[in-house]
C-alpha cells in the first residue's frame, strides 16, 4: 500500500521534472505505467536489454520492469501486451512471432544487430587441425551438413554409442524446433541424437569444454556471442535459403520438411502493438537503436570472463561510447543519460 503510493509519487515527481524541462517525454512512461521488458537469458540479449533499459530509465525517466523468461513465453506475452518490449528479436524465426505479427499484435522496429549469423558449427581444428595444440584434422573433408552421416562416429554420443550427438538448443528456444526439423530434413535422425542440453549454460559449457580439450563437437550456435569471439568455429554449409522450405522448418508439425539455411538474420526490437501505437517517442528511439557487431562481440567477451556482469558492461558502454549512443536519442535525453554516466 505504502509502497505503491510512494512509487506513484515518485513517478509523478519524475513526470513533473521531465515536464519542467519541457523536453522529449514518453507518453507511456508519463502515464505512470511501467515498461515491462523481456529479461532475455542469453549473453547478447542480456546486454542489449540492459542498454535499452538504461536509456529508458535514465533518458526518459521510465519505470522499467525486467521479466525473465524464455523466448516462447516472451513472444506469447508480447502478443498479449503482458510485456511491451523485447530488445533482441530474431524476426520471423518462430511460429508464435509470425502469427502474432500477421495478426498485427506485435511489431518489429529498427535494426538492433546487423550481420548476425547462426547455423551448425564444428571447431575449426576438426577440419583443419591446430598446430599449437598438435591437433590433427579429424575430418578434413567435412564441409556441409550432407557430409555428417559419414562422421557420426567422430561425434559419437556415449549414451547411444552407435549414433553421433548433435547439440541442439535447449527446449523452449525457437531454434530448438528449427534444428529438430533440420535433422529430419537432412536425413540425420537415424545417425544423430537430437541432444537438447537443457539450458544455455549447459550448451556453452559443453562446447567450451570440448574446445579446451581439442575434442570434436557438433553444435548449433550463433553470433553475436562470447564463444564466437573467443574460439574459432567453422560453419557447415546448408542448402541455400529457400522461403518455402524454411517455413517447413519453423513449423514443428511438418512431417517432411525440406532443408534450407536460415535467412539472413533480421534482428530487431520487438514491441507489442499497444505499446507501439501508444508511444511514438520510444519507438523513434528503438528505430535508431543499434550496436555494431564488433563492439558487441568485444563486450560479450568481457562478460564471459565476468559472468552476470551485463550491467557492468552496460555502464562501461555508456561511459565510454557516447559516439554511438548519442545517435539513438534527442539531445536533451542524451544530456540526462550523460549526466548519470560521467565521472565515477
Amino acid at each position: 500500500m505504502q509502497r505503491s503510493t510512494c512509487s506513484t509519487l515518485f513517478a509523478l515527481a519524475l513526470a513533473l521534472s521531465a515536464g519542467a524541462a519541457a523536453a522529449t517525454t514518453s507518453p507511456w512512461c508519463q502515464s505512470g505505467k511501467p515498461v515491462k521488458v523481456a529479461g532475455l537469458n542469453w549473453e547478447s540479449g542480456e546486454l542489449l536489454t540492459e542498454l535499452v533499459a538504461t536509456v529508458l530509465e535514465q533518458g526518459y525517466g521510465c519505470r522499467v520492469e525486467r521479466v525473465p523468461s524464455n523466448t516462447i513465453t516472451i513472444e506469447n506475452a508480447l502478443a498479449q501486451n503482458d510485456i511491451q518490449l523485447v530488445a533482441e528479436e530474431w524476426v520471423g524465426r518462430s511460429e508464435i512471432w509470425n502469427k502474432a505479427a500477421a495478426a498485427g499484435k506485435v511489431k518489429a522496429v529498427g535494426n538492433v544487430i546487423v550481420g548476425a549469423t547462426e547455423g551448425w558449427y564444428v571447431p575449426e581444428y576438426v577440419v583443419k587441425g591446430e598446430k599449437t595444440r598438435k591437433i590433427r584434422p579429424a575430418a578434413p573433408q567435412l564441409q556441409a551438413v550432407s557430409d555428417l552421416p559419414k562422421y557420426k562416429q567422430l561425434f559419437r554420443d556415449n549414451e547411444e554409442p552407435d549414433k553421433g550427438r548433435f547439440l541442439n538448443c535447449p527446449s523452449g528456444w525457437t531454434c530448438e524446433g528449427v534444428n529438430s526439423q533440420k535433422l529430419k530434413a537432412y536425413g540425420l535422425t537415424d545417425s544423430y541424437v537430437n541432444f537438447r542440453p537443457g539450458s544455455g549454460a549447459a550448451l556453452d559449457a559443453a562446447v567450451a569444454s570440448a574446445y579446451q580439450r581439442g575434442q570434436p563437437v557438433l553444435f548449433y550456435y550463433w553470433s553475436p556471442t562470447a564463444l564466437m569471439g573467443k574460439y574459432r568455429f567453422i560453419q557447415l554449409t546448408e542448402p541455400a535459403y529457400n522461403e518455402a522450405c524454411f517455413k517447413t522448418l519453423t513449423d514443428r508439425n511438418q512431417a517432411k520438411p525440406c532443408g534450407s539455411a536460415a535467412p539472413e538474420a533480421v534482428i530487431q526490437a520487438g514491441v507489442s502493438r499497444v505499446f507501439h501505437d501508444a508511444d511514438p517517442v520510444l519507438i523513434d528511439f528503438l528505430g535508431k537503436f543499434n550496436v555494431p557487431l564488433p563492439l558487441l562481440n568485444a563486450a560479450l567477451a568481457g562478460m564471459a570472463n565476468n559472468p552476470g556482469s551485463a550491467a557492468v558492461q552496460s555502464r562501461r558502454f555508456f561511459a565510454t561510447r557516447p559516439d554511438i549512443w548519442r545517435a539513438w536519442v534527442p539531445d536533451d535525453v542524451a544530456q540526462r543519460i550523460a549526466a548519470r554516466n560521467t565521472g565515477k
Binding site: F195, A202, A206, A210
Partner: peptide, 11 residues
C-alpha cells in the same frame, strides 16, 4: 552442475 558438464560432458 555446470563445472560437472565441463569435466564430464553433457548428459
Amino acid at each position: 552442475l555446470i563445472p560437472a558438464v565441463m569435466l564430464f560432458g553433457l548428459g
